[in-house]
Structure formats: structure tokens, C-alpha cells
Design a protein around this nucleic acid. Sequence first.
DNA 1: ACATTGTATGCAAATATGAGCATATAGACA
DNA 2: TGTCTATATGCTCATATTTGCATACAATGT
Lengths: 137, 137
Amino acid sequence: MEANLKAEILKILGDQTRLRVAYLLAASKRSLCVCEIVDSLKLPQYQISKSLIMLRRAGLVDVDRNGTWGYYYPKTDQKTNTILFDFVKEYCIGEPFDGDLTELSKRLALRDGGRCVVGFVPEKELQKLIRKKTAAV
Amino acid sequence: MEANLKAEILKILGDQTRLRVAYLLAASKRSLCVCEIVDSLKLPQYQISKSLIMLRRAGLVDVDRNGTWGYYYPKTDQKTNTILFDFVKEYCIGEPFDGDLTELSKRLALRDGGRCVVGFVPEKELQKLIRKKTAAV
DNA sequence: ACATTGTATGCAAATATGAGCATATAGACA
DNA sequence: TGTCTATATGCTCATATTTGCATACAATGT
């Protein structure tokens, strides 16, 4: 539960999926809904869920729940976490991190009033929904 | 051999021993002899050796050999490595990192002409040797 | 009540990792 | 040649981790 050792924290980030999730949270300056992360990384939902839980147990992120939706964000109450996230943002350049951010920005375009209002959206439908939404505006 | 994935690198640092070794190399601005690292961390020689080899395979450190002595140093030819070592220096505060640095500075006092001239030195003998050396100067 | 949806989690098999010890190698030197 | 000494490495066992799947749970809407 309490993984306060620095090495334990780095071990958590020493996994491709968890690092991508951490990067997404660090780089996008907002809380992200689980389904948004799933769509951005295009990985099975349970992998994202498990990754988020491990990041949370390590004290790196926290969650705001809104009904069934869960919004995760980086915890910056400790200085070491700030150092860590700054590092992740700077260190994780190139793929797959850039692509993940691109996908995320597309997904974020579907938000309504700053809130995630759709669940899992397959690639194909994403374009349609974005068009519909921008037309509505 | 080629662990260029960012997560793989972080996984290497996600181990207490390897992180301590990496910190020692990052924080002391010089090449360190294997036996100096062994004495500083007070861990079995094979653990240090294995840790150094893994750090080397990950492209984080390199070694200069001088007879049987091996001097390891952080590789800073890639920008990402520089970012990484700067992070490690900043992130690894408190124990055991501080203590390791203290032990190292004691061990470095035994150097002669900037070179390591003694092998493994048990705690007790260290004090004697240091006294002898400072008296000789 | 029921179905749907977003999210979390238990389980089992495959795989990876770390600790410890013994030993190998190789250079220095008597 | 033989013996130290510094460092590297092979092997085994215990343990940890990952992966994928199925399913649980909880909130929402009909």
C-alpha cells in the first residue's frame, strides 16, 4: 500500500502502459476520464484501470468520482511528485507519447461543459462524433 | 541489449540497489571504482557488479578499465540521459542516498593521485587508513 | 425491476526478476 | 609459475509480475 521508497515509485513507471498513462496525465493539464485514457492509448480497458490503480497506490495520482465516471489527475501535494511529473513530461518524447497526446486531444473535443459525456468510442465513430459536435456549435 | 524504450530504462532504475548506484554516479561528479561503490553502499560485491552491468546494458553508464580496476561513469552523450541523471539527483533525497554519499566521500579520501589504490576496505579499517593517510600528508 | 454502461477486480498460467553463492577471469606482482 | 586481488558471471530457487479473461459492482435510465 505504502510505496514510499523512491525505487518502488520508479518501478511503477517502469512499465510501458503505466508510463504512457502517467505521461498523459502529466502532459495534459487536466483530470482525465478513464474512458478517455482508454481511447487515447487504444488498449484494453482493464489494462488502463489496473495501471491507474497502481499509480494511485503509489501515491502518484488520485481520482474524483462523478457517478460511474472517474477522473484521474496527478497528485502534486508532495514536492517529489512534482519533480517526478516534470521529469516525465520532459523525458517522454517521441512515440508513443506524442501519438497518445494527439489521440487525447481528439477525444477531449467530445467533452461537453468540460465533462466527459461519452464512454468508449471506437476509432471510426470518433470522427463522426467530432463532426456532429462541431456542426452543432 | 538495446533498451531504448523509456519504460525499460525506468524499470532498471526501479530497483533499490541500482537506483543507489545510479545516484552515487550522478551525484558525485567523477568516475567511481567498483570497490568504492561496494564500500559506499555496503552491499555484496556481486550485487554492485550486476547492477552496474545492467545500468551499462541500458546505456546509462559506461566504464573505463585500468587493469583490474573498473571506473564507471554516467553516459551523458544523449540528452535523455542528462535529463534522467538530473532528475535522479534531484529526486533521490534523504536516506539511503545521503548516507551513501557520505560513505563515498570517506572512501574517496583514500585515493592517491585521483586513483583508487585500495580494494575492499571493511568499515573498521577505513578509519585507520584515513588517519594514516592524512598523517602522511 | 431490468438492462445498460463505466469501471474495478479476482483468478490462473506464463514469464520475469532478485538474492545468494560459488566460481571464473584476468591483471599485478612475488 | 603461483598467488593475490578486482571484477564478472553462471546457476538455482523463491518470489514477483504480467496478461488476458470473465465477471463483479455501482450508477443511470427505461
